[in-house]
Design a protein around this nucleic acid. Sequence first.
DNA 1: CAGTATCCTGACGGATACTG
DNA 2: CAGTATCCGTCAGGATACTG
Lengths: 145, 145
Amino acid sequence: MQWDTREDCEVRQILDRVADKWSLLVIALLDRRTLRFTELKRAIDGVSQRMLAQTLRHLERDGLVSRVVHATVPPRVDYALTPLGVTLHETIRTLVTWTETHQNEIAAARTAYDRRIEAERLAAEREAAERDALAHDVLTAGQGR
Amino acid sequence: MQWDTREDCEVRQILDRVADKWSLLVIALLDRRTLRFTELKRAIDGVSQRMLAQTLRHLERDGLVSRVVHATVPPRVDYALTPLGVTLHETIRTLVTWTETHQNEIAAARTAYDRRIEAERLAAEREAAERDALAHDVLTAGQGR
DNA sequence: CAGTATCCTGACGGATACTG
DNA sequence: CAGTATCCGTCAGGATACTG
């Protein structure tokens, strides 16, 4: 795969949008259905009102999500995937499926890595202690004279 | 698609890693080949030494990228996708392909959106100006008495 | 070459308050 | 309900210097 890697190129900018934490979740949740602002907010644990609004604005701007305002009281705004958004949803879904499929492997890799690093840290510590002990011996011997 | 949306669940954490700006680019670049640190740094426009190192450390920890140190002078470190990383690369590639395929549609959507917003802004401005003019008329009439 | 360590700034994003 | 506006803290991440 060879593509334009310049920071200001189209692909990079779109990738940054897609790679966005909340965008990914919003698109994944709007799977063939319409959700209201509050429903999305409740569904996505940890998102603030501000960030959700901003994310939805961006997705709307990119033509991935449609925003329909109903002139009722109380107001009601429905969000849904556009046809373009649906095509992106397909590839997002494979990504989510991938994480579900491989989460155990990743968890195992993390544990193994952390253990290895910890072992290396201990080894380095032990080595340093030995060097110190040696230096101390030399010092003591010097004082003995 | 219905999954655990809690912020601290495995899938969310892995998704956050995958959704990371630099991770995505590194995985995409390590397509069936081995790259050295500096090669990656040169290939990814805009990444700092620090962020690249951090990203590679994370990917290594997750078992997606292998890191091989050659005991030569000058030192040489090769990064490559692990078998697990290759499987992720497949789905990342579809994502990149998607952005390439649809970048024109998105660019068009953005332009259209910006034009619409600008038009709405101008309309609101005009309306405000009219209200002001009306208020001024009332004021003038009042002073006339 | 391939990093780590340190410092420092800006923007991301949370909390709160207010509006249509 | 569905936002926008404002304030403000933190922490991601850039710049720089140093090391094996």
